[in-house]
Design a protein around this nucleic acid. Structure first.
Lengths: 243, 243
DNA sequence: TTTATTGGCGAACGGCGTTCGTGTCAAGTA
DNA sequence: TACTTGACACGAACGCCGTTCGCCAATAAA
């Protein structure tokens, strides 16, 4: 059958081209999927993040995602590394390694905490994504250049990262419960602490003498202070091992 | 109306009693459910533990469990506290608080690590179960009696527990992957470390100078050494805060 | 123009946690 | 002994989930 012309050889007039960047083909890509997944994660938590939910958000079926992402696990790790990209690192100054290590930890904790449930992936995945490597190189280099032995620096990076992720993960579990109960942050925290306090006060003092005596101290400090206290424990421990 | 006799007053003959503990009624109970759940958890991991699976093991339907357990979350917490019951604590001796704190941490880590995925519940739940309280009273009392301020002791108990749980949880995630791949413990560990090592060695040294130079140190230590290193960091940090 | 390749996607599979309504038995009451 | 009651057992179903299969359309290659 004879056809008048082919749009491939004959240059299409500008006014045709101008209105044709419409892609009939779906424009799915890994980046788009990861971005959408992160948005859902932030808005609805890990429980709300499902392959179906992501697909729905992109106006397609769940099967379509699997061309760009192996499975949900991989999607989560991709989201995780993207979140790590938000971490800002100061220029390393080995003379101030204690302060900089502390600042890094707090920054990392802040970023993980601001994206619900992402911390879980932090504990699960090996640090192999580009942003994880960037951060590892930074912290590791900082400690090495400060004079720490490679073995100590290696262990330190690993342990601090575990501590940060663990605390952030614990925080995200609370955040999830808060969301589930529908309470606001303050109300939730109050009811949570109140619950524990009354439970502790009801304990038989003979069996739990120390807890009973110091209930006030046990419920005194909130999340941020607890995190920094443990962090400083580790940093001081590290400092005492420096030559 | 006159009644011949009551089985409550007249002692039933031994041969009747001997053959009558047969319960026609299903003998479901919370204890039985928790025990069964723990058995499944150990055998098949957290992914294998479902309400349906527990019910199946007890030859019943999943709905039957909900008379004894509010939901899966609660079941997990009950299992968690039961596991904590396996932790053995030495008689407290405040003069040796450092050693005893260390021993407690290692014991706790061992127990959590020997029951796959239970560590997750450790991070999720507030320490309110009987065994959790028993342990909290022990550690808290040990530190108080060693002369630590109540505030420091409170924070210390919390932070050490987080560190233990976090490490155990991370370990359980690896264990789960090992189970999923079907590899043995040694093979898995070897392939895991090898994977990381080759990845690190392939990095451009200009961009990752410290990592590239110290690959051997980065992959040197295994799980147990890493755990104890971080633990000692915290304990030393605590010791430096003692009066 | 024909062919090969690739991504999109509807449908389905086998699982999940949880709820509803009904059945059934043991203990309490008369 | 007869009847009531209340607690528990549990089949069936609801609405989710992650993932796979197989077909289709559109593009790229020949």
């Amino acid at each position: 059958m004879f056809v008048m012309g082919s749009s491939e050889n004959v240059p299409t007039p500008p006014w045709r081209k101008a209105r044709k960047p419409v892609q009939l083909r779906r424009q799915l890509s890994q980046d788009l999927i990861v971005e959408t997944g992160l948005r859902i994660l932030d808005a609805e938590g890990l429980d709300g993040l499902s392959m179906r939910r992501v697909a729905q958000e992109l106006d397609t079926g769940p099967a379509s995602l699997y061309a760009h992402v192996a499975n949900k696990e991989e999607l989560l790790e991709l989201i995780y590394d993207r979140v790590l990209g938000e971490i800002h690192l100061a220029d390393p100054d080995p003379a101030r390694w204690k302060e900089q290590l502390r600042e890094y930890a707090i920054e990392c904790h802040r970023v993980l905490g601001s994206h619900a449930d992402v911390a879980r992936a932090a504990l699960a995945s090996i640090p192999i994504g580009p942003n994880a490597l960037r951060i590892a190189e930074y912290v590791f280099g900082l400690l090495i250049d400060a004079g720490m032995s490679p073995r100590d620096a290696s262990l330190a990076v690993d342990r601090i990262a575990l501590y940060i992720s663990g605390d952030a993960f614990e925080g995200s579990l609370h955040f999830g419960r808060m969301r589930a109960t529908g309470l606001g942050l303050e109300e939730y925290f109050k009811s949570f602490v109140g619950h524990i306090e009354s439970h502790y006060r009801a304990l038989p003092p003979e069996q739990f003498p120390h807890i009973s005596e110091h209930v006030d101290d046990l419920i005194a400090e909130g999340g941020r202070a607890r995190f920094e206290y443990g962090l400083d424990l580790m940093i001081d421990g590290l400092a005492s091992r420096m030559p």
